[in-house]
Design a protein around this nucleic acid. Structure first.
Lengths: 209, 209
DNA sequence: GATTGACTATACATTATGTATATCTAATTT
DNA sequence: AAATTAGATATACATAATGTATAGTCAATC
């Protein structure tokens, strides 16, 4: 006879609450630890007050947990403001706003730095994070298309997109953060992005002859 | 009685040869493996035809081996050309040349990428690599001091140095390398560096009011 | 009251770093 | 020639982490 299965509101709610508690414990562990090296499921499980096997039940693997933490941070990191920024009339002002939004995002939770570190040792996790970054690339591309003059070559557009994509990445943010506040980093990145735009608007002065 | 010790030319030569063989095997393993995750001393030892304990005898630890590989790559990576570049009369041309040199360096051996990945999981190794990068920072600082007009503020100089430091870093190179040849990346980075210089030469147009 | 879902307890397999001890071999010293 | 020494080896062990397997607990649902 086939097993009868059912959905339980109380059980699902409890499971969801457990899941949230584990994610919270994981991001706290990431924040407090001084490197991703010491981030173990054992530590997370103890911090969340559950068993290590519960973590596997909920997330399948270490990578699954890391992805869940990343998504949780992204959900509360203010990236939803990107839609408003993209709707602005002036694309240059929109770009400035985008830089602000991502500087806030990278600086909001130190766990994002640790998550980027985790990309180094787990190629599949790296791909998962890269896919999430593609949203930023699409936004940059859309703005460049609006900003660029009709005479701007496809190559110049591509260069500008990739350069601004790199300038708004986490590694650049982290590098510039040594000795700078979030707002100061934001200002420097905005300036660099403006400069990256110049050859698009005034193509009469190519940067290399 | 005190133990008598001696130095043996043949022994030292053999040891040095073994050391070289292990370093070669390690960098080959780094190049061929698809991530730093699978880089184990066991694999390296087998590839070099020695025992894992020999690796420990020579390098002390996994980190010691990675540092040795990094230094070996740096020794043959063309960074010695930096001295000639710094001696150029035109500091802007020197900067262009510096970008060239580092683009060559980052692209020369794919093992450097894996070594940068290793920084994520080993803070002390990260510090060791960062110290070696300080040479690049000093070179940039020296060039900026020569390029900047007398009216350029210390803040503007610092911003330019840190921005160019970030633009010539490995993460930026790796990011721009998607779909670009080494020379194309070099051209894009050079353009961005020129743009970063603008506020130093013509401070009448600050980038943020 | 029987069953099911989430969690637990315990054990095990695997892989990696790093340490300890004894042994082997060829180069060097006496 | 014999003793010694440096470098490499063989073997074993300690530790920690991921991931899997199996059985058991307990409350919610049928």
């Amino acid at each position: 006879m086939p097993p009868r299965s059912y959905v339980s509101p109380a059980r699902s709610a409890a499971a969801a609450e457990t899941r949230e508690r584990v994610i919270e414990a994981a991001s706290r562990t990431l924040r407090e630890g001084e490197s991703i090296a010491r981030f173990s499921l054992d530590t997370v499980a103890k911090a969340a007050g559950v068993t290590r096997l519960t973590v596997y039940n909920q997330f399948g693997s270490r990578r699954g947990l890391l992805e869940a933490v990343f998504d949780e941070i992204a959900r509360h990191g203010g990236l939803h403001q990107l839609a408003d920024a993209m709707a602005m009339a002036d694309p240059c002002a929109a770009l400035d706003r985008m830089v602000e939004i991502f500087c806030s995002f990278w600086s909001r939770d130190s766990a994002v730095g640790r998550l980027h570190d985790a990309m180094a040792t787990d190629p599949e996790f790296a791909e998962a994070v890269s896919e999430r970054n593609e949203r930023r690339r699409r936004a940059v591309t859309a703005l460049i298309d609006r900003i660029a003059g009709k005479t701007a070559s496809p190559q110049a557009r591509k260069d500008a997109v990739d350069l601004i994509f790199a300038l708004t990445s986490y590694p650049t943010f982290a590098s510039l953060s040594a000795g700078r506040s979030r707002d100061e980093v934001c200002r420097v990145v905005q300036g660099a992005c403006h400069a990256a735009l110049a050859p698009l608007i005034n193509p009469s002065s190519p940067r290399n002859g």
